[in-house]
């Protein structure tokens, strides 16, 4: 057993887990945070996406012990206009991939804001990269949606991005923290 401290959604959590316990199972089975979903348990679907210190990662391939002391944000800790945008644009059907899509989108927007390129970025040396539909699709391709709500997800992300640019907003990840 290992003693692990995590700061989850702004709250310090301490848990005793075997080293083999994934961050995903720690969240779902030990901490009751079932908003983060298990779709494949092997890094192939993105449903388990959470933010670790603001970066999107797959909690199924993360051992909880490896994330000692890290700041983890799950869907339960997200309070962002993007959630309303997902509802408005019907960016989901069954809702099972949705937590991962939303966390991934928040991480992706932060990556883009930091200037990170993608596989479809032409002109890697450019200082600014426009977040086109093609860019969003490529950057979100690690999040599968079998219901096929991709159009709505892209629309929700676009709207969120446009609002942020208009308001020069910074990403809000955890309720009460800005």
């Amino acid at each position: 057993m290992a003693d692990v401290h995590l700061r989850i959604n702004g709250v310090d959590r301490r848990l005793e887990v075997e080293p083999r316990v994934s961050l995903l199972d720690a969240l779902r089975e030990r901490l009751g945070l079932t908003g983060t979903k298990k779709g494949c348990d092997q890094g192939a679907c993105g449903a388990c996406t959470v933010l670790a210190d603001g970066e999107r990662v797959l909690s199924c391939l993360a051992l909880a012990v490896q994330y000692e002391g890290r700041e983890i944000t799950t869907i339960e800790g997200v309070a962002d206009p993007i959630q309303r945008a997902f509802v408005r644009h019907d960016g989901f059907q069954c809702g099972y991939c949705t937590s991962g899509q939303i966390c991934s989108a928040l991480g992706m927007l932060a990556e883009h804001a930091a200037g990170a390129p993608s596989a479809v970025t032409e002109g890697l040396a450019a200082a600014e990269i426009e977040l086109t539909e093609a860019e969003i699709r490529e950057r979100m391709s690690g999040n599968l949606c079998r219901c096929g709500a991709y159009n709505g997800i892209v629309a929700a992300i676009q709207e969120t991005q446009e609002t942020r640019v208009a308001e020069r907003d910074v990403p809000t990840l955890v309720e009460g923290r800005r």
Partner: peptide, 26 residues
Amino acid sequence: AHRAVRERYPMLAQAILAGASGQLRN
């Protein structure tokens, strides 16, 4: 995303970005 890689070795940046997903690359 490293500036020097993008400018001096674009094929390396492209190769990495062509692999896996954003989450896995993180």
